[in-house]
Design a protein around this nucleic acid. Structure first.
Lengths: 192, 192
DNA sequence: GCTAATTTTAGTACCAACTACTAATATTAA
DNA sequence: TTAATATTAGTAGTTGGTACTAAAATTAGC
């Protein structure tokens, strides 16, 4: 056996890793990496079902194109399953490992907060709403993959202030509760 | 003049819009859209400095590749500019319109919360930290483009509980304050 | 209306990064 | 040493282009 990690199997395993780590490598570059010919790389890709460079790039572009939008562009975090304006609402958020800390797989608090904030804003019957105060408590850690069910209830309204309670549960177990005081702005035009 | 929005200028303006809206269109498809030849589309792209399909896809892929990571993969939100473990820390977060509500340009509370949570976790000297309770207040709205400066101070430590205050300011004006009670887990191996 | 300028098409050669295929050469195993 | 497996070489064809030349169509100016 030769110096590198020779042998077909090893090379193919490494190839999978390489391509996953950097999908922007051409067959030629990969051939250089593994000290084999382009043809060998192509045979490997064929056997492993790895698409060609352009396909890979396209996949990354397409996946992320919608992904980015759904993360930062969405006005509501989680899926709204029930909503009675001015009264209550329910939203569901499926968590995944991208939302969690690498080491522990525990979902970052901000994602849970985002769902809660989002449903709280959605439930009040005002065009523009902002959080004034929030009093929140994380009761137990949420792990990647957990399905979060958030219930929001408007408990009081006073002028442009709304008091909303939000409870989030995972499999009937409460993992978060928060009291939000939302303030709705009158849409005053352009004030610098 | 013909039916569609004929004229070079109009077509080119529309072309810019089209390509921006969907970067995955080939010259051929664009030619069909505007009822002109492929050559015309290519001249237009040349004049407008619009790169070819593959370049566009690559750009989307590359931009989002790092972008997605920086949004959801990052362990710390904002840039850590000062950190004294167990005592205090400062982070800076540049906001943009992606973080804000479309209508009002007001930055979503969850982003501010995320910065605060993140610096609070960073500042305590424990490998794994989770929020137990947070008592927070948004003092005035933050607009897209504002630079958020977050200061965290550990005010008390009791067993595995840490009490951290976080203040966030925009141009010396306080926009957020929050009291976090963080709980550090002893890294118990694999408990299902 | 007629010429000149502009715009649009057509057509060719060439490129990158492939696929799909055939065939030869190395390497390894029995 | 022969058979099986793995690797390399080489050709033709594909997509979605660039870069270029040249002809045809359209429009503007007078």
């Amino acid at each position: 056996m030769k110096g590198k990690g020779s042998g077909k199997k090893e090379r193919q395993n490494n190839l999978i890793q390489r391509v996953k780590a950097d999908p922007f490598l051409t067959d030629e570059e990969l051939a250089d990496v593994f000290y084999v010919s382009i043809q060998t790389i192509r045979l490997d890709r064929l056997e492993l079902g790895i698409p060609e460079l352009r396909e890979r790039i396209k996949n990354v572009a397409e996946k992320n194109y919608t992904k980015v939008k759904s993360i930062e562009g969405k006005e509501i975090i989680g899926e709204l399953v029930d909503l009675n304006l001015g009264s209550n609402g329910i939203s569901i958020l499926e968590t995944n490992e991208d939302m969690a800390f690498e080491k522990t797989n525990v979902v970052r608090g901000s994602h849970i907060f985002a769902q809660a904030e989002s449903i709280a804003i959605a439930v009040i019957d005002a065009s523009v709403a902002l959080i004034g105060v929030a009093n929140i408590k994380y009761k137990s850690p949420v792990f990647a993959g957990d399905k979060l069910i958030a219930k929001a209830d408007v408990v009081r309204t006073r002028g442009n202030k709304y008091f909303v309670w939000v409870f989030i549960k995972v499999k009937q177990v409460e993992v978060f509760r928060g009291k939000f005081i939302l303030v709705s702005f009158s849409t005053k035009e352009e004030e610098e």
